[in-house]
């Protein structure tokens, strides 16, 4: 990635024009650009991670890797684009917990068994924060307050099915508390609602609120992970405080079902190699990602585990609209 900017664009264009010229006889995979479909707008977490992976995957493969944003329908449109693409390895996608929830909530969304996870990139543990002006400084007083006033805190979260919504639901169960949940479209509006104290608490992942926590505007009370989060090392985990609550969003790369064995292997090892590079790790660290590079099996296992945790919540909330189970 050197040289002047426009030259790079031109080169990419020329490359594409050249490969577009004629269908080549079967050559070694890959011999044309690979597209990674992100089901969310540019700038979001899925997008940022997708682009980072694309950049380093390019170094491992002889072709360019392009990120395309196909937003809409709570991420379901992007996932469906991958599901319906030819299983040739040239169309991949990113997905997180949203794809699990959508597969139950939306009859038009892609069922879980129509996605083939190739690699896990990172996990993003759930957390709960309150505005500093609430005077709540630790999880214990948070719980005590809510036991005295059920529903007494307004919590900012996603609309039903989104990760921070599921976090709130699962946390209510784990701690036996009740929140008043108010939905926002995405994390950025939730943060601004928390800062402006339209909501008192928010079930946002740590990186969204770490700086505000450090600046003293927001108190992160606990992290739903096995270990503390490196961006906020002073915040304990739920487990440390004696509550059995572990839940994380993630970004995994997946393809349509039916990839040829050799293509699948090539992609999996290239993804693992890309995530193993020193520079990738440094860049991920800068963004605040908790890397958890794993191959296809690890990714599939996490997807199943999430499925098992999320499904009962969706059933109870009356959100299941499909026959899948």
């Amino acid at each position: 990635m050197t040289g002047s900017a426009p030259l790079h664009v031109l080169a990419a264009g020329a490359l594409l024009a050249a490969t577009a010229a004629a269908p080549q006889p079967a050559a070694a995979f890959p011999d044309e650009p690979i597209t990674i479909v992100v089901g969310w707008p540019a700038g979001g977490a899925q997008d940022t991670v997708g682009r980072l992976v694309a950049e380093y995957l390019e170094a491992e493969l002889p072709v360019s890797v392009v990120v395309t944003n196909v937003p809409g329908a709570a991420g379901a449109n992007g996932v469906r684009d991958v599901e319906q693409a030819a299983p040739d390895g040239y169309t991949l996608g990113t997905k997180g917990v949203h794809a699990v929830a959508q597969s139950y909530m939306n009859p038009n969304a892609t069922p879980l068994d129509a996605m083939d996870p190739l690699a896990l990139v990172n996990i993003d543990p759930a957390a709960v924060s309150v505005h500093a002006d609430t005077g709540i400084e630790d999880l214990e007083s948070f719980i005590a307050y809510l036991r005295d006033n059920p529903g007494g805190l307004i919590n900012g979260n996603d609309s039903p099915g989104g990760f921070s919504f599921l976090t709130a639901e699962l946390m209510e169960r784990a701690l036996d508390i009740e929140l008043t949940k108010v939905p926002y479209q995405g994390y950025a509006p939730t943060v601004s609602a928390l800062v402006a104290q339209e909501v008192m608490s928010a079930t946002l992942p740590v990186p969204m609120v770490a700086d505000l926590h450090e600046a003293g505007d927001v108190n992160i009370l606990a992290v739903a992970a096995e270990e503390r989060h490196f961006r906020a090392p002073d915040v304990p985990t739920f487990t440390e405080l004696g509550h059995d609550f572990v839940f994380a969003d993630y970004v995994m790369i997946f393809g349509p079902v039916g990839l040829p064995e050799d293509v699948r292997d090539t992609l999996e090892s290239a993804l693992l190699a890309a995530m193993d590079s020193e520079d990738f790790r440094a860049a991920a660290d800068g963004i605040g990602l908790i890397l958890d590079p794993q191959g296809a099996d690890g990714a599939a296992a996490l997807m199943q585990a999430t499925d098992a945790a999320v499904h009962p919540v969706l059933v109870e909330a009356g959100l299941v609209e499909t026959d899948a189970q």
Binding site: G43, T48, R51, L52, S192, D211, A283, G288
Partner: peptide, 23 residues
């Protein structure tokens, strides 16, 4: 000032900043 992108465009800018390790 707050680390909150106000619209889709600044969200992309912010994504770029993050990838460069600036928050």
């Amino acid at each position: 000032t707050l680390g909150i992108p106000g619209d889709p465009i600044t969200a992309v800018l912010m994504g770029a900043l993050l990838i460069h390790g600036l928050r």
